[in-house]
Computed example of a mutant assay.
Amino acid sequence: MSHNINSNIVLLIGTGPMAVAYAKVLQGQKIDFQVVGRGVASAQTFYEETGKKPITGGLELFLENNDVSQFDSAIVATGTEVLLDCLRLLIQHSITKILIEKPAAVSIAELNKNKELFMSHAASIFVAYNRRFYASVLETERLIEADGGLEAMNFEFTEWTHKIDASKKVTAVLNNWFFANSTHVVDLAFFLAGKPVDWTAYSKKGNLEWHDKTVFSGAGITEKGVLFSYLSHWESAGRWGIELLTSKNKIYLKPLEGILVQPKGTITPQNHVFDDALDHEYKPGLYKQVDAFLSGNTSRFITIKEQLEMGLNVYSKMLA
C-alpha cells in the first residue's frame, strides 16, 4: 500500500509489545519511521524483535534535541498511564496528526480535564481502537448490509479479573479498567449499531479491591434504531463477545476475530469463512488501521473529541 507522506517520517512512541506490533506493520508497508522510548531494556527487546534501534531517554528529551519538522505524523503506543503526557508533548512541538492508543488517557476524568489541550487539533487526533479494523468486523458489516441492516444487538465485556495480576499493573489503570480495557468491546458494539440515545444502565459493586463496579447491565435503542442489551459480570464466567441480529441471521463475534452465523430457523451457528490473512500476519486490525491513518482515510476512526463525548455520555453512565 502506498501513502502520500513524501519524505516525511512517522514518529513511533513506545517500545513495548504494542509498539513492536506497529513497527512490524510500518515495516510491512515500507514506511520510514523513528522509534522513541524511555528505558534501555525494553528498547533492546524492541530492537531484537524488529531490527530497528529506538532512541531512548524519553519523548521530551527527543523532541527538544531534534528537528521535528521531518515528522508528518506520530503513533503513540506507550503504556496507558503516559498516553496523555505524550500527546501534550507532541502538540507542544506542533505534531498534530496523531494516532494514539486506546483509550487516549488513564481515565475519563483525565481526558476531560485536559480537553483544552487537544480540542483545537481534535479533527486530526484519532484513538486507535483496532478492532474496528478487524477483517471479521469488515466482513460482518458486509453481511449485515446484505441482510438489509441491523435490527438488534447484545454484547458482553466480561473481564477475566482472576487472571489480572494487580501487582504488575499501574493502580490508576486498574482503577479505570473498564475505560482502559472493556471499551475495546463497547466501542466496537456502538460503532456497529450506532450510539445509544434512549437507554438505561445499571451497575453494582463486587469484591474487587481495585475496581469500583464489577457487574454491568443495560438496554435501549441506538441512533440507528437498533435495540441493544448488555450484561457483564467480571467475577463470574463469560468472555468478550457481540451478537448481531438481522431479519435473516444472528451473527456472533465471539471471539471478536471470528464469525459464526446462525440462519433464521436453525439452532446451530455455522463457522463463516472469510479472508483474514492480514490479521494472522500482523496484530489483528493493525495493518488496515495504520493504512487508513496514513492515507487520510479516517472515516472509521473515533476522534479524540468523540472519545471524550463517549466517555462523558456513555461510559460514565455505564459505570454510574
Rank of each mutant, 00 (worst) to 15 (best):
L117R: 03
D279P: 09
L312N: 13
N130D: 09
G285I: 06
G296D: 00
I75S: 03
S2H: 14
G241E: 04
G258L: 14
I164S: 14
L278D: 08
E141C: 13
L11E: 05
H93N: 08
L208H: 07
D67L: 12
L294H: 12
L87C: 01
V261A: 05
L188N: 02
E223T: 11
E49D: 12
E209V: 14
I9Y: 01
P269N: 02
T298S: 08
F118W: 03
V82G: 13
A41N: 11
L260I: 11
V314C: 01
K205H: 14
V273R: 13
V127E: 03
L319Y: 05
L90N: 01
I91N: 08
D72T: 08
Q70G: 07
T161N: 07
F46M: 08
W234C: 10
L188V: 02
W234M: 15
V35Y: 05
H162A: 13
V290D: 06
K317C: 08
F178K: 10
N271F: 15
V261K: 04
F33K: 08
E159F: 02
I302K: 02
H211N: 06
V82I: 14
I55E: 11
V226C: 00
E223P: 06
L192M: 09
F71L: 13
I100L: 06
L278H: 07
I75Q: 04
N112K: 11
I100R: 02
T161G: 06
D67P: 07
A43E: 01
G238T: 08
K52D: 13
P103C: 04
I108L: 02
V76Q: 03
M318N: 08
V273N: 06
Y282D: 09
W177I: 15
N181F: 07
A41G: 10
E281P: 08
Y287F: 15
P284F: 04
W177A: 11
E81N: 08
K163E: 14
F274S: 00
V25Q: 05
D187Q: 14
T214N: 02
I55F: 11
A41S: 12
L61Y: 06
S2N: 15
N176Q: 01
G79R: 11
V185L: 04
V36M: 00
Y134V: 02
S217T: 09
K115I: 13
R132Q: 05
I108K: 03
K204P: 06
T303I: 07
K52G: 11
N8P: 03
R132H: 09
E235F: 03
E141P: 09
K213L: 00
L138F: 13
W240Q: 07
N114L: 12
K317E: 05
P54S: 07
S299K: 15
K195N: 15
I259P: 03
L26K: 04
F118T: 02
Q29F: 12
Q262T: 13
V36Y: 02
K102G: 02
M119P: 08
P255I: 00
T158E: 10
N130S: 14
P103F: 00
K283W: 10
K254D: 11
G194S: 04
L231F: 10
S69N: 06
R239L: 13
E49R: 10
V76A: 05
